[in-house]
């Protein structure tokens, strides 16, 4: 029954040596090992997290780029449309301006014709009046000389007038 009886000496040495080993290993082996393992796991975790983040950022960037591109395209369309509008407006305006000018010139021409006509009429009226006065003068003079000749003269003048 020797093997099931613990011996004092071995218990003593086991206690002393095991605790010494425990202390030394804890200090010089387990602590640095466990620390290094945790550090490495942390760094792997961090790296994975950062990769995930980078992926997300990349996606965001891509989405941003696409949005920018779409915006630019939209703006270009807008600008083209505006340009068209402005061009159309310009043509329209030119047309109306030209029409107006033409109308104005025609109006002016009409007015000046009217004026000339009025002037001419006034001149005719003046000439007719002058003539009438001349005739009347000559008539009057003739009457003083011979009535028959006078009559004859009136007739002559009237004939002249009609001829004019």
């Amino acid at each position: 029954m020797d093997i099931v009886t613990p011996e004092l000496g071995l218990i003593f040495w086991q206690l002393v040596i095991f605790l010494l080993v425990l202390f030394l290993l804890a200090k010089f082996a387990w602590k640095p090992i466990l620390l290094a393992l945790r550090d490495r796991e942390d760094s792997i975790d961090n790296a994975l997290r950062m990769a995930e983040q980078a992926k997300l950022e990349m996606q965001n960037l891509k989405a941003g780029n696409e949005k920018l591109l779409a915006d630019a395209r939209h703006e270009r369309d807008q600008m083209l449309k505006e340009g068209q509008n402005i061009a159309n407006q310009l043509v329209e305006k030119a047309k109306t301006d030209a029409t107006e000018e033409a109308n104005r010139i025609a109006q002016q021409a009409r007015e000046s014709i009217q004026q000339e006509k009025n002037q001419a009429l006034a001149e005719v009226r003046n000439t007719a009046a002058q003539l009438s006065v001349d005739i009347a003068e000559r008539l009057l003079r003739r009457e003083l000389a011979d009535p028959a000749a006078q009559q004859k003269l009136v007739d002559e003048y009237l004939k002249d007038v009609k001829l004019n």
């Binding site: 000496g9 071995l10 040495w13 040596i17 095991f18 080993v21």
Partner: peptide
């Protein structure tokens, strides 16, 4: 009280050194 360095105690020391 027998505190001798027995065969097992030597083996114990040896394994302690090995582990260290």
């Amino acid at each position: 009280y027998d505190l001798s360095i027995t065969k097992n105690a030597v083996a114990l020391l040896g394994s302690a050194v090995l582990m260290l």
